[in-house]
Amino acid sequence: MLRLIAQRLGLGLLTLLAASVLIFAGTEILPGDLASAVLQNTATPESLAEMRKELGLDRPAAVRYVEWLGNAAVGDFGRSLASHRDVVEEIAPRLRNTLFLASYAALVAVPLAVALGLMAAIWQGGVYDRAVNFVTLLTISVPEYLVGYILIKYLSVHLGWFPSLANVTPDTPLVQRIGLTFLPMLTLVLVVVAHMMRMTRASVLQIMASPYIEMAFLKGLPKWRVVVRHAFPNALAPIINVIALDLAYLIVGVVIVEAVFVYPGLGQLMVDAVSKHDVPVVQACGLIFAGAFILLNLIADMAAILSNPRLRHPR
């Protein structure tokens, strides 16, 4: 089992490495190279050649990749082409903001989704279950910006309860920060809870339908005992799995929600960088997002391994 965990960790690292190759290849080797990206329409053959030399593009891609990865490993992502500032300096406060928003949303969404999902599973087929099923089917289909703008229109513009812009600065105190980011958080929660809740419900129901749960009832065990001792330990792995995968989805949601509320996060930075063809920033942001995504998938995997009795207690 330890071997299996080590294997997964190794696989995770390998995936990260593969992602880094992909990010690098995507930005450096594709037909329109960095130099033409920087110069855009003003490019002349001479200026292009000069720019290539300046950026070191005349050396082989493999060499540049190793150099880039080596620098990235020690926290050096180069300089932004747009602002000419150090990429790490540019990213650090943004990353902090995004992590804050994402954890804020996760902290609210996870307990809420699990609780709602468990309730739906317990009252399966009842009015609550059907209502929740219908509502979540609706909200799953609703894009983040619609939720965001509806919240702004009614909670912010009409009622004036919350600010519509989440314009935090590095020295905004925590309490104020929580208030400022309330609407972005709520938007994310609304979008992610539906799926998380449906999956929680499904995993619990699948466990509850297994023969050993029927057997537990036939043994005359009280319902709390069946749920807590027999169903929950077995349902835990699929639930953690679902949560981790949904949090990975949150990464994408964050990018859009940041745009809706003009929140100075990593997603906004990346979108700006993409439209400005600011490759070093795109690479750094991409690597961070990919890393978070891979980490969450790894956690989902680990949960499945750790909770499998066959692996925990081999023959």
Partner: peptide
């Protein structure tokens, strides 16, 4: 396919679009 799925689709798209327009 594993490689392409190692990143969120949106992020991957960003990277391609940043270069190809």
């Amino acid at each position: 396919v594993d490689l392409l799925l190692s990143m969120p689709t949106l992020i991957f798209a960003f990277i391609v679009l940043s270069v190809l327009g």
